[in-house]
């Protein structure tokens, strides 16, 4: 079981690094979708036995992160007629390097944070920290509002990965609450992008602080 979880964790790391190195927004959205699907299967792998609750939770997560979010984001892109390039402040190769450094950093950090429980030795904690760092970095280093939604989803995914593996008994209500929060956030941001774009003819968040005259 544990080697399967490690495999999933490696896929998560690779999707994050791919996200940092990709120049097309549609490709980025697909990567996030893949990440969501892989992440959705984590509770199944971590749990000892498959219960109805677990199966429902997995299905809901996969559907939401793998289908609904990408669909909403792609629709927002289409409606707002966003150009395909990511337009980063930090170049792609440099971003991947930063990602690699933050992976090293999170492995180092995780060693200083011993966890109780059976999953203590797995990659879960470093990967969760790494995903949070990558999400924050994506938010900071990309120019477009849509990339910032992507970064936000990655941060949420990181926390989800942590919860799914470390605490195998998260109350369903909390879990669903978090999923709902993110859903609403993505939905609202999708609408916001459309309005930003309609008001300002662009969605470069860097220019939002100047007055429109």
């Amino acid at each position: 079981m544990s080697s399967w979880i490690d495999g999933v964790m490696v896929v998560l790391i690779l999707t994050n690094l791919a996200l940092l190195g990709t120049s097309r927004i549609t490709v980025c959205i697909r990567i996030i979708a893949l990440q969501g699907v892989v992440l959705g299967t984590l509770p199944m792998l971590a749990g000892e036995e498959v219960t109805l609750r677990l199966a429902l939770l997995t299905t809901a997560t996969v559907l939401l992160k793998g289908v609904v979010f990408p669909w909403l984001l792609l629709r927002a892109m289409r409606k707002a007629e966003i150009q395909r390039e990511v337009e980063p402040y930090v170049g792609y190769i440099l971003s991947v390097m930063v990602g690699l450094l933050s992976l090293g950093g999170s492995v180092w950090l995780a060693q200083g944070l011993p966890l109780p429980g059976p999953m203590a030795g797995t990659l879960a904690l470093p990967v969760a920290l790494f995903m949070i760092f990558v999400g924050l970095f994506t938010i900071c280093s990309r120019r477009k509002a849509i990339s910032q939604i992507l970064g936000y989803i990655v941060v949420e995914n990181g926390m989800y990965a942590f919860g799914a593996v470390i605490l195998d008994e998260v109350p369903t209500l909390v879990e669903l609450g978090v999923l709902l929060d993110v859903f609403v956030a993505v939905f609202v941001m999708g609408v916001a992008i459309y309005h930003i774009r309609r008001e300002f003819d662009h969605m470069d968040v860097d220019q939002l602080d100047t007055l429109k005259g």
């Binding site: 490696v10 790391i13 190195g21 792609y92 990602g99 690699l100 090293g104």
Partner: peptide
Amino acid sequence: VPQLLVAAMVLSALALVLLMR
């Protein structure tokens, strides 16, 4: 091409990180 090679480097470095843990 540099992106491909950096990707290869990242894969190797990632393997090293996994094994160093």
